[in-house]
């Protein structure tokens, strides 16, 4: 009885084909205009978009391949299953589409009337952005990573709060919980 219960999810998968792509049959390439294209088996799609199903929890697995109308052509279970060249193309596309630069240092965080102005560095680039509603805009992804969304909708990532310098950490700490 216990066994049957444990097997129930795979049963559901059988009933509903979720459209997992065969990595051996999926071949990405760049079209002459530089956009990502894919051949899935016999069919050729001259431009496609990639979308993460779990952008925070599982960014490299369950990648939806969509045409430009947003129609799903199939799901890649794991980028690692692709050939290295293919993987590189897919990762480049995902990184460009999910733009989320890594914050390397926090110079200051100042509050004004409920808005928080972050003055941060991304390597050599400095930037000031504003955040409203801290509790929604600062998302602690796990013990280390923190994602910040600013008022315009741009996103920033602190990959590891424990790895940035102490001064920066002390500035962000009051906003984490």
């Amino acid at each position: 009885m216990t066994e049957t219960l444990a097997q129930a999810p795979s049963g559901a998968e059988e009933v509903l084909d979720i459209g997992i792509l065969d990595p051996a049959q999926t071949e990405f390439y760049r079209n002459p205009n530089g956009f990502l294209a894919v051949r899935i088996g016999e069919s050729d799609h001259r431009r496609v978009k990639l979308a993460r199903m779990l952008p925070f929890a599982d960014p490299d697995r369950y990648i939806s391949v969509e045409d430009m109308e947003g129609k799903e052509l199939g799901i890649l279970r794991d980028l690692a299953e692709l050939a290295p060249e293919q993987q590189k193309l897919a990762r480049e596309e995902l990184e460009a589409r999910y733009f989320c630069p890594a914050v390397t240092a926090i110079r200051s965080i100042k509050e004004k009337m409920g808005y928080f102005y972050f003055d941060v560095s991304f390597g050599t680039v400095q930037k000031v952005f504003a955040v409203k509603d801290i509790s929604r805009s600062i998302k602690q992804l796990d013990d280390k990573a923190v994602a910040i969304t600013d008022v315009d909708g741009s996103r920033y990532l602190i990959e590891d709060v424990w790895a940035i310098d102490g001064k920066s950490r002390r500035k962000i700490e009051p906003y984490l919980y």
Binding site: N33, R46, F99, D152
Partner: peptide, 17 residues
């Protein structure tokens, strides 16, 4: 023509949207 034939112009963060 379909989007595959587009000419890429530039990219920007949401501050410029």
């Amino acid at each position: 023509l379909p989007d595959a034939e587009n000419v890429r112009v530039c990219r920007f963060t949401m501050a410029h949207a």
